[in-house]
Every structure is written in structure tokens, then in C-alpha cells.
Write a protein that binds this DNA or RNA. Structure first.
Lengths: 168, 168
DNA sequence: GCCCTAACGATAATGATTCTTGATTCCCGG
DNA sequence: CCGGGAATCAAGAATCATTATCGTTAGGGC
């Protein structure tokens, strides 16, 4: 391999290395590079996008290794995975994020914006308690049309029954 | 075919028939039977469970037809689909449900309980407006351990980094 | 540096969902 | 009620994301 020594340099990588060591998992170059791609992006990346970024960097890392590394990153708590209804998962690192943030997803362009409503945590705990559950986490997603798509003239269309209020 | 005439008899089937007619789609026996299975259950059914119920009724309806019918039912607004992280979708009819109800999912036994917090609708609208979005719908899921699993001694375990508060 | 173990990459397998095909059913007008 | 064109059906092949397999290669404790 050529110039692979300074590839992974995001400021949080040491946390991932610590996690790997604490759990007896080898700290491999591939894992560091994959983690660096995720840590260096502010987007919600799909595995395909991670793969593309690796290719752009000139790295030749197998897709299976990406999946395996994402699994470890999610377990470590450094990364969260999401399914926004696209048929595949997206990943985001949790640095610089407020705990318990939520997502606003454009139903047209699939762009994702984050927001934070602290009361959701309280609602989670109240609801869980009311039903005897021990709360672990929650997921709130709001779907709608983003400003760009609205400006472009895209419209929300409801093609269901004309009078849903009667039936619900 | 033998005794297929009174198979589909749930009280809301006429709404589905109306939707099909309004959209120029043929009202077929298979669609009625599949809809009847979903309308007759209070559970959150997977396609596999729907298939099993059809087999139990002695119906021989292809899996592709189930998928196509579910697609129409969701578009009609009579049924909602959910992905609770099982790797496949679950479907529930919306009769007798309050508009905008949410779900509490057991992380151990995957059982699903419904709840309703009307303020979520307000939060949806406020958040969307604050970001220039036109709100369409939302999805709130709370994950945790249900009373049965708690009583059985199951525990939530966090195997991530020891001190996540520092990193988040 | 050595060696054992575990990760790597390539590829095959899996599981949920969608598409294709030829046969059947629906539905509209007569 | 009958006929015919269009759309749906069942079965299975194809697809897509993800996971497992396997021979090879690389971490890391000694």
C-alpha cells in the first residue's frame, strides 16, 4: 500500500480505537478509515455513499467490511443508524449532536434536517411508565416537503379516500 | 372454486371497494380476501403472517398479490405500514384508531402497544414550520422492555462506550 | 520478529420485496 | 347475458440490501 498512513485523522478516532481495545477487537486500518469517513461527514450516509467516498479516497475496502465496521460503530454508541423508508439504512456519527435529536425528512428529495425537542424525552418516559415499560430510546421522524421542493412547485398529494375523517 | 363467496365480510370492506372503483381498479376476490384478513386483525401483521392466515383459511393467494394489495391499501389510507426494525414491514388497519397514534415496541419480544399523545401533532407542525417544511405526517416510536419481559428478568444492556455523556 | 487468532476481500447465500410471464378474470358496451 | 381488450392473477425468477463463507492476510501479545 502507498500513502495510507495519514488517511484517518478525524479528532474522534481515538474514541473508536479505545472502544475496540476495551472489547478486545483489533484496531485495523480498514476500520479506522471507514470510521473516519463517517466521522468526517455531517450527512446521513448510506453504505453506498460510504463506499463511494472510499473510492474517491483511493481506498479499496470491501463492502462486507463496511457493514461489519458500521455494526461495531453502532454498538459502540458513536454512530446511529436510521431507516427513513428508503429501503436501506443511513448512518450518522453522534459528535456535536445533542442527545436525543430527531429528524425532519423531505418526502420528495429525501433530504434530512435535524431538530431537537427536549420534551420528547419526557414523553417517552411518561408513556413507557404508563404502560409498565422500561424506556430505552425513541425515534421521532417528521415527514414533509422541504423549502427547496416547495419553491420548485412540488406538492404533497393525498390519493387516499376522499373523506378519511369519517373512517378513522 | 368452492366456498369463496362469504369469505370476505369485515364491516369496512365497502370502503376498500369504493376506493378501488373510484380509482378505476378492478374489485377482485383476492383483493377483498387480503383486505379482510388485515381488517379483521387488531395486530400489526407482517406479510408472512398474512400469508399464514390465508393458508389457514384455505385460500391460495400468491405472495406477490399480497404485496400489491398492501400497496393499494396503504395508498388508500385505510392501512398504515410500519418498520419497527425487524427487517420487514408490518401493517395495521386504521379503523377504530385515533388519528395519529404512536407505538411502544418491546426490544425483547417485539410486541407492539399503541398510545396517543395529541401534542405530537402540534410538535410536528411547529417543527416543520420552524424549518420551512410543509408537514405531511410523523412517526414516533418508543422502544423499551415490556412488563412481561421485565417480569421475566430480561434486562436492557448498553454495551457502548463507558462514558457516552463525555462524547455527545 | 513469531505465531495464533481474528479481520480482510471476493463471492455466494439469504430474506424481503419487485418484476416477468402466460393464463385467467374483470368490466363495459352491445 | 356475451365477447373482447385490458388488467390482474399465481408462480417463480430477478433484484436489492445485507449477511455468511472461505482462503488469505494482518494485528498484537509474547
Amino acid at each position: 500500500m502507498a500513502a495510507t498512513e495519514t488517511v484517518a485523522n478525524s479528532p474522534y478516532l481515538h474514541l473508536f480505537r479505545r472502544y475496540l481495545r476495551q472489547h478486545g477487537l483489533p484496531v485495523t486500518l480498514q476500520r479506522e478509515i471507514v470510521a473516519d469517513v463517517v466521522f468526517s461527514s455531517t450527512e446521513h450516509l448510506s453504505v453506498e455513499e460510504i463506499e463511494a467516498e472510499l473510492k474517491k479516497r483511493g481506498e479499496r475496502i470491501g463492502k462486507a467490511t463496511i457493514y461489519r465496521t458500521m455494526e461495531i460503530l453502532v454498538r459502540s454508541g458513536l454512530v446511529a443508524d436510521h431507516d427513513f423508508g428508503d429501503g436501506f439504512k443511513r448512518y450518522e456519527h453522534l459528535f456535536g449532536q445533542q442527545r436525543g435529536h430527531q429528524h425532519l425528512v423531505c418526502t420528495n428529495c429525501r433530504n434530512v434536517v435535524e431538530f431537537r425537542r427536549p420534551e420528547i424525552q419526557r414523553i417517552q418516559d411518561e408513556v413507557a411508565r404508563a404502560h409498565g415499560f422500561l424506556p430505552a430510546r425513541h425515534k421521532l421522524e417528521v415527514y414533509g416537503l422541504c423549502p427547496d421542493c416547495r419553491a420548485a412547485g412540488v406538492e404533497l398529494k393525498y390519493e387516499g379516500l376522499a373523506c378519511p375523517a369519517l373512517t378513522l
